[in-house]
C-alpha cells in the first residue's frame, strides 16, 4: 500500500528504497516546485533543471537522508528548490538573495473552477483576476499557504519572513478577494 502523504513517501523512499513512492512524490510535488523555481529564476529551462535536480539528489541521497529529522517533506523540498534557485542566480552573477518583490508569478496561475465553487464563470474570472493582481509578495505567500498547504510558520521559514508578516499578507489577499467579488453577488448588501 502506498500513501500519498509526502512525509510518509519520504520515509518509504529513505527506508524502503521505494521507487513507486519516489514517483508518487514527484507526481504530487513537481508542478509546485517548478512554479516556485520559475518564480525565482524566471527562466523555464533552468527552472526545469532545478526541479529535476532536486528530485535526482533526493533519490541519490535516499540512504543518507535523515528523514526523521525532516519535519515536513513539503517544506524540505521547497527549501531545496529555493537554495538551488539562489545558487543558480549566484552562478549567473545575479543577486543571490531571495527578493520577494522581484519574483515572477506570471506562470504560476491559479484558475478557479466556477462549478466547484458554485459561482458564475464571470465571478470566477473576477476571483482569478483579483488573485493575479495581488502584489507579488502577497501572491507568493497566498499560493504557498493556500495552494501548497504550508503552515504560516513553514511559509515564514521558507521566505525568510516573520509569521506575523505571513498572517498580514494572507489577510490582505483575502480582503482583496472579498472586494473583487463583492459587486457580483446579487443579494449582497455591502
Amino acid at each position: 500500500m502506498f500513501s500519498i502523504e509526502p512525509n510518509e513517501l519520504l520515509r518509504q523512499i529513505a527506508e524502503e528504497n521505494d521507487r513507486r513512492a519516489f514517483r508518487n512524490l514527484y507526481d504530487i510535488m513537481h508542478k509546485s516546485l517548478y512554479d516556485f523555481a520559475l518564480a525565482i529564476v524566471k527562466l523555464r529551462e533552468p527552472a526545469e533543471e532545478i526541479t529535476a535536480d532536486v528530485f535526482i539528489r533526493l533519490w541519490e541521497r535516499r540512504e543518507k537522508l535523515e528523514h526523521g529529522r525532516i519535519r515536513s517533506c513539503r517544506l524540505y523540498l521547497f527549501m531545496c528548490v529555493k537554495n538551488a534557485s539562489l545558487n543558480y542566480l549566484r552562478d549567473n552573477k545575479r543577486p543571490e538573495q531571495l527578493d520577494l518583490d522581484q519574483v515572477s508569478l506570471a506562470d504560476w496561475e491559479l484558475e478557479t473552477n466556477p462549478e466547484e465553487l458554485m459561482i458564475t464563470s464571470e465571478m470566477a474570472a473576477c476571483l482569478d483576476r483579483a488573485i493575479r493582481e495581488l502584489p507579488v509578495r502577497c501572491g507568493i505567500v497566498f499560493r504557498l499557504v493556500k495552494e501548497e498547504g504550508l503552515s504560516y510558520k513553514e511559509a515564514a521559514q521558507l521566505l525568510d519572513l516573520s509569521e506575523k508578516t505571513i498572517e498580514n499578507q494572507i489577510a490582505i489577499a483575502l480582503k482583496k478577494i472579498r472586494q473583487a467579488i463583492s459587486f457580483k453577488i446579487p443579494a449582497s448588501h455591502s
Binding site: L117, L174, R178, I181, I185, A187, S188, S190
Partner: peptide
Amino acid sequence: EDAATMEIIERM
C-alpha cells in the same frame, strides 16, 4: 458580511 460571500471564499 453576508454568509454567501464567506461561503464562496471558504470554498475558494
